[in-house]
Amino acid sequence: MRTPNAKTAPKRINYKLKSQIQLYAIMSPVLILIFIFCYVPMYGLLISFQDWTPGMPFMDFTGQTKWVGLKHFSTFVHDPYFWRLIKNTLVLSAMNLGIAFWIPIIFSLLINEVRLVKFKKFAQTASYMPYFISSVVVAGMALSFLSSDGIINKFIMMMGGEPFLLNMKPQYFPIVYTVINIWRNFGWGSILYLSSMASIDPTLYEAASLDGANRWHKIWHVTLPAIKPTIVVMLIMGVGGMLGADSDMILLLYNPATYEYADVIGTYLYRYGLVGGNFSYGTAVGFMISLINFGMVYLANMVSRKVADYSLW
């Protein structure tokens, strides 16, 4: 015999669906685009297990499809540049995560403490602007600054030093890449933290003031705990992207002289997969890296849930 709760449950679900139909309608275009451009192309992952060339079908029953199993995955692992690619990718991502990740948080904390509204708006706007500059323009500016007659070498000569080509010294590439990333992204990255700070109850600061707390105490005991969930989520996503360094920017900055420190998995895929026409090999490497990234996200999420009591799921 059905209970009253069991009878009313379907009605309750239908009511919720009808009351939120506008939200689903607003979300539907985005969901459709995500499905078309993110999930439908995953069908192409089949070529990572094939010797595929343009014009061949992804799957057929006439024998045209040449299945090779895990051949391309094995080829990448045994590639002589494999460990160099892994090392460079991890080093650049670790520098970005260990340094560039925290700059937006510090900047947002400082901006939140500014009481002059006009200066606060000016500082925020000025910090956002580099993010909207094209990567090509940013890389061009950087290479111009690093050239023999660039502003950096002119400053070195003013200080009595000898000029040298920074963009031809591979050991300096990680520093140059990290500094450019910080300059371009720290303002935009601070938006999320500033929006989290804007939702903090002002009475918490008032209560802290009554207890004799200064600005530092308020930041440490009120602001940071309030934005802690946001920091944890962004950190988990950052860990998940450790093997996905900003390949577009690196491609624009690096040259054969800096491959030793600048060549990462993304640039390797571009050269050997796309430019070299090895589409199956490139797909296999990208698929492998995506699986590793997912594993890192899952592990970081699990650790965060146990240690900080915050997680993505």
Rank of each mutant, 00 (worst) to 15 (best):
D246H: 15
Y270T: 08
T53N: 13
F82C: 13
N96K: 15
Y39V: 13
I133R: 09
D309N: 14
A100R: 11
E206K: 10
G189C: 04
S304C: 08
K169R: 08
A213V: 06
V117E: 12
I105P: 12
I152R: 00
F49I: 08
F76E: 04
M141G: 14
F294T: 03
C38V: 04
K218D: 02
L17C: 04
A25D: 01
V275A: 07
L269I: 15
L291H: 03
V239E: 00
P4M: 04
W188P: 05
Q124N: 08
K306C: 00
G140L: 01
V179Q: 04
F122D: 03
I227H: 01
G55Q: 10
D79F: 06
S209A: 04
V222T: 10
R271E: 13
D149T: 15
G44E: 09
F164G: 07
Y298V: 12
V77S: 11
L166Q: 07
M234Q: 14
G98S: 10
S247Y: 15
Y254Q: 14
P163E: 00
G241H: 12
A198E: 14
V264W: 10
T283L: 06
V114L: 12
T89P: 13
V285M: 03
L194R: 06
F73P: 03
G273V: 10
P163H: 00
S280Y: 04
N5C: 05
D149Y: 13
Q20M: 08
D211A: 10
V137T: 12
V297S: 01
N5R: 13
L85M: 11
G266I: 08
K228R: 15
T267Q: 08
Y15M: 05
G63Y: 06
W183M: 01
D51C: 02
G295T: 01
P104V: 04
P225Q: 01
L224P: 12
A100W: 07
F279C: 03
L90P: 14
A6E: 15
M296W: 02
Y177Q: 06
V68D: 01
I175A: 13
G189R: 05
I292R: 02
I86R: 08
W216P: 01
V176M: 09
W216A: 03
S195A: 15
S144D: 04
P170Q: 00
S280I: 05
M249N: 15
A25P: 01
I36V: 12
L299S: 02
F76I: 06
D211I: 03
P41T: 05
V91E: 14
A100D: 10
A213Y: 07
S247I: 09
I106C: 07
G212N: 11
P57D: 09
Y268W: 15
N301D: 15
Y43H: 00
S108E: 00
V176P: 10
L46F: 11
L31R: 05
L253T: 04
A308C: 11
W183E: 01
P54V: 09
N96L: 11
F76H: 04
L90W: 12
P10M: 11
L109M: 12
S28I: 10
P225Y: 01
M158G: 06
M237G: 07
D201V: 11
P80R: 07
E162P: 01
S196H: 12
I34V: 14
D263M: 15
L192V: 13
T125V: 04
I156Q: 06
P225V: 01
N293V: 00
P202A: 09
I151Q: 00
S190E: 07
